[in-house]
Design a protein around this nucleic acid. Structure first.
Length: 689
DNA sequence: GAGGGGATTCTTTTT
DNA sequence: GAATCCCCTC
């Protein structure tokens, strides 16, 4: 939808300007605000506008005092977008919350280490408490003291064996620890509980040792480090992750008056993008700052830009925001610049607060919205809509699914997804959580190691015939020695000669032409693969090792070995077109006229034609959406704040407001209990196409 | 048929 | 890593 040609009445223009003026006044008065703007209202535009106003009005003063405007966002993508839209300026520091906080607190190592110590002491207490209260530690508790100590001693001796066999099946695990199985048969009989107990004890030991090392001032233990790469703390190694960074910041800012003053002096203007997604702790820390700045009469301006109803992750403050600073001034923007009237009306009903949007345009084309309830085949449903909405490669259809697995499968690479999902590595413990990022992340840096290798090959394959810069890149990096023109031509010919209808064939073809000492070809392979492997079988083994035989200590049975090998070969023999679809998905450049997304992944985006596939359940919750539909049109949920309900409502709001022109929802489960509720919001339910 | 223990199965997203 | 499913034993 191109909104450039649409017209806005002078009256609406004036009203919109007035909202901006209101913000400017609060900026001038250093009165902190929360700017609530619904979906499609141009919230980011207002944020940029505010930043520009601050620069033009206060730029000189800021420069003189060596001060800056701080703009914090939730994601790196948002940082990039704001930087681009804002243009070049040294007066504004745009950064993610975590980066920014770390820069601020990092120099205060003395205090940080102290906080870190207290944190570990707290963790030890928690673990000890678990051991003395939790059911899984019942049998450990029942042991007399000296036996507990004996177990501890024995396990410390067997530490290596323990970790080596921890992931074996229960019988094997037990037999790897024969003495324990004999003396402590009662405890180890439930191996899962046993592991929990031992892990807790080991963790306590580690923390105690680290506290000790801090006390004696051991090298490497006088500094806390923030490691953004992992999601878990490694407290014993003085490493913290995202959440703990916020926790420490919160403590340090609260405790340290001087630091508060330094921040207030350095950043008299702080703008927070998508405030509803920021963590409780961040809002709390900012709150401390605001209060403190008033106390010392160095008023600062904090602007929270966002929309409570678009809080779809349970990590953000969301509607709890209202509980923090009751003195915030509220600015609302109720114009919509995105969608057709029909969609705005429904969206207004879904968000059950008092923010009601209206279109800013006089002549936005008519749209459609429909709620279907039937158990039709999804493909038939899509086909019907392709006709109805004149879907083509230019006018695409965007379908929303709840899970990544569905998206992957609908997008045409089910076999690839299933291969990784069913591999041993991704089934092991917490690795399961990495599956999504490793296969589907649009940020190629986040792909798994195997996926990354395949991606490199596919990237080369897709570019070698069309993209001269790619070829030059490969060749350029590759050829250190001088090649004659004819040899260079040979080399390019060879690279373009790599072919195959499966990855297996393609990789084989890649190595078939390889002879040691080949002019440049070896260097090319090195550049493409970023590995030393120079035969198909080595690649096959690499995948096998990463996904099935990763634990070098494991002695695997022959059957397991054979089975795994077969899986890898079958994987590499998948039609290469499936890999192309995967590749296109990763790069977000699918040529298909039907594109799939997860609900959550569409946040911030907009599409002309949208189908939302919905069912009662989501994840482990069998009534995730049916529960919401039951009360959909009811104004008040105040009886008691229902977090799950709120989350589902926000998610529905976000998805519905993505559509600009045409929207159909297909709900596939029974609606007989809440027909009226649905029809109050979406109009008559349709039972056939 | 109860309960103990093992195996299998999962949601979304970001830092 | 927690919840649930599933199987075995008494």
């Amino acid at each position: 939808m191109n909104t450039k040609d649409l017209s806005i009445s002078p009256e609406n223009k004036k009203r919109e300007e007035k909202i901006f003026e209101e913000i400017c006044e609060f900026i001038d008065d250093k009165k902190s605000i929360v700017f609530d703007a619904g979906a499609g209202s141009g919230k980011t535009y207002s944020l940029i506008q505010s930043l520009k106003y601050i620069i033009t009005t206060y730029g000189k003063t800021l420069k003189v005092h060596n001060q800056k405007v701080l703009c914090i966002t939730y994601t790196n993508v948002a940082v990039a977008e704001i930087k681009e839209r804002l243009g070049n300026t040294s007066l504004v520091e745009v950064s993610t919350i975590h980066d920014c906080l770390w820069v601020i607190i990092r120099p205060h190592q003395k205090q940080l280490v102290e906080i870190h110590k207290i944190k570990m002491q707290g963790e030890i207490e928690k673990l000890e408490n678990d051991l003395s209260t939790k059911i899984w530690a019942e049998r450990y508790r029942a042991l007399p003291q000296e036996q507990q100590e004996q177990l501890l001693q024995m396990m410390n001796d067997k530490k290596e064996v323990y970790y080596r066999h921890k992931n074996d099946n229960a019988a094997q695990f037990k037999s790897s620890l024969p003495e324990i199985s004999k003396i402590f048969s009662n405890i180890i009989s439930n191996s899962n509980n046993f592991k929990k107990i031992i892990d807790s004890i080991f963790k306590i030991q580690k923390y105690q040792a680290t506290i000790e090392k801090i006390a004696v001032g051991k090298k490497n233990f006088n500094e806390v480090e923030y490691d953004a790469r992992f999601n878990n703390d490694k407290l014993e190694n003085m490493k913290i992750s995202h959440d703990t960074l916020l926790e420490y910041t919160n403590k340090i800012v609260d405790q340290n008056a001087l630091l508060k003053q330094i921040i207030c002096d350095a950043y008299p203007f702080i703008l927070v993008d998508e405030y509803q997604d920021t963590d409780h702790k961040v809002v709390q820390a900012l709150n401390y700052l605001d209060e403190y700045s008033q106390k010392i009469k160095h008023d600062i301006f904090i602007g929270y830009y966002g929309d409570v109803k678009q809080n779809i992750y349970n990590t953000g403050v969301g509607s709890d925001f209202a509980n923090y600073d009751k003195n915030l001034k509220r600015v609302e923007k109720s114009f919509n610049r995105r969608s057709a009237e029909e969609i705005i009306v429904v969206a207004n009903k879904i968000r059950n607060d008092d923010l009601k949007q209206e279109t800013i345009y006089d002549d936005f084309p008519k749209g459609t919205i429909a709620f279907y309830n039937m158990s039709t085949d999804k493909q038939d449903f899509i086909k019907a809509h392709i006709d109805k909405w004149n879907i083509t490669g230019e006018n695409k259809l965007h379908c929303f699914e709840l899970t990544n697995e569905f998206v992957a499968k609908q997008s045409g690479f089910a076999n690839i997804y299933d291969f990784f999902k069913n591999s041993t590595w991704y089934k092991r413990g917490k690795n399961y959580e990495l599956l999504r990022d490793h296969i589907l992340s649009l940020d190629t840096k986040k792909l798994g190691p195997v996926q990354n290798l395949l991606f490199r090959i596919l990237d080369f394959k897709s570019k070698v015939n069309y993209d001269e810069t790619m070829v030059q890149d490969v060749i350029g990096k590759a050829v250190t020695q001088d090649l004659t023109i004819s040899k260079l031509r040979d080399l390019i010919g060879k690279l373009r000669n790599i072919k195959g209808y499966t990855l297996k064939a393609y990789i084989e073809s890649m190595f078939n032409q390889y002879h040691q000492g080949d002019d440049g070809y070896d260097e090319c392979l090195k550049y493409i693969l970023d590995s030393k492997n120079r035969s198909y079988i080595e690649i096959e083994n690499l995948i096998l090792n990463k996904l099935f035989l990763f634990n070098e200590h494991d002695e695997q049975s022959d059957e397991y070995l054979q089975e795994s090998k077969d899986k890898v070969i079958k994987f590499l023999e998948i039609d290469i077109n499936e890999f192309h679809l995967w590749y296109d998905y990763i790069l977000d450049k699918s040529t298909s006229s039907v594109i799939y997304h997860t609900y959550h992944g569409t946040k911030g985006l907009e599409f002309d034609n949208v189908i939302i596939f919905m069912s009662a359940k989501f994840g482990k919750d069998n009534e995730y959406f049916s529960r919401l539909l039951k009360v959909l049109s009811l104004k008040d949920e105040t009886e008691e704040k229902d977090i799950k309900l709120e989350e589902a409502r926000n998610l529905l709001y976000v998805t519905v407001t993505r559509a600009t022109q045409n929207l159909s929802i297909l709900y596939s489960d029974d609606v007989s209990d809440f027909k009226e509720q649905i029809e109050n919001v979406f109009g008559k339910i349709k039972y056939e196409l």
